[in-house]
């Protein structure tokens, strides 16, 4: 995952100083950082499914679309799930008779970083397979869509590095405090 060289210091500065809304002449512009799910839709030839129909279903209401939209020209679609609705968020992408659906676990069921994929990138077309075998990933001669969902969706969880840093910070606090009072008595 690409990281900005400047991202962490900027965020740290904002956290220390407090993030304030920018106000001028009665306007009110605010920002917030969010954790999003990005869907990448492409045919197994690698062609992006651009301007494909996207329907998102929340885990607690599988029959009703929670969000509808279209992919961009790169076949990407990004949305921010409701963190209060934990479970499998399902995203359906369709274009010109081709379709696929992907399930993205969010919240309690989620791992700290989720990468879900519905189609093996190296899948081979059955058109070249006279005798189907167990290794045949899907039965098709037609171009099939493939969806990849990439998310740094952690809910209330943190990455192992973050947990380690926080634990180290806390531990150092205890040690430092103990040393402080020990030295004072001496």
């Amino acid at each position: 995952m690409k990281r900005s060289r400047f991202g962490c210091p900027w965020l740290a500065l904002l956290l220390l100083s407090g993030a304030l809304p920018a106000q001028a002449h009665g306007s009110n512009v605010q920002f917030r950082t969010t954790e999003a799910i990005e869907i990448q839709a492409q045919f197994d030839s690698g062609t992006p499914m651009s301007e494909a129909q996207v329907t998102v279903y929340a885990p607690d209401d599988p029959a009703t679309p929670w969000l509808q939209g279209i992919t961009d020209e790169r076949g990407h679609f990004t949305f921010t799930p409701d963190p209060a609705r934990a479970g499998n968020w399902e995203v359906k992408v369709r274009q010109a008779g081709h379709g696929d659906i992907i399930s993205v676990p969010v919240g309690e069921l989620a791992s700290e970083t989720v990468i879900a994929q519905t189609h093996a990138a190296d899948s081979t077309s059955a058109a070249t397979t006279a005798e189907p075998t167990d290794s045949t990933p899907a039965a098709t001669t037609a171009e099939q869509p493939a969806l990849i969902a990439r998310a740094d969706w952690s809910g209330s969880a943190y990455t192992p590095l973050q947990k380690w840093l926080m634990a180290a910070s806390g531990l150092w606090g205890f040690i430092g405090t103990a040393l402080f009072f020990t030295r004072r008595k001496g």
């Binding site: 990281r3 900005s4 991202g7 962490c8 900027w10 965020l11 740290a12 904002l14 956290l15 950082t33 954790e35 740094d152 952690s154 943190y158 990455t159 590095l161 973050q162 840093l165 926080m166 910070s169």
Partner: peptide, 8 residues
């Protein structure tokens, strides 16, 4: 920093 890196 730990919190900020994740969000960015």
């Amino acid at each position: 920093l730990a919190v900020g890196c994740n969000t960015s």
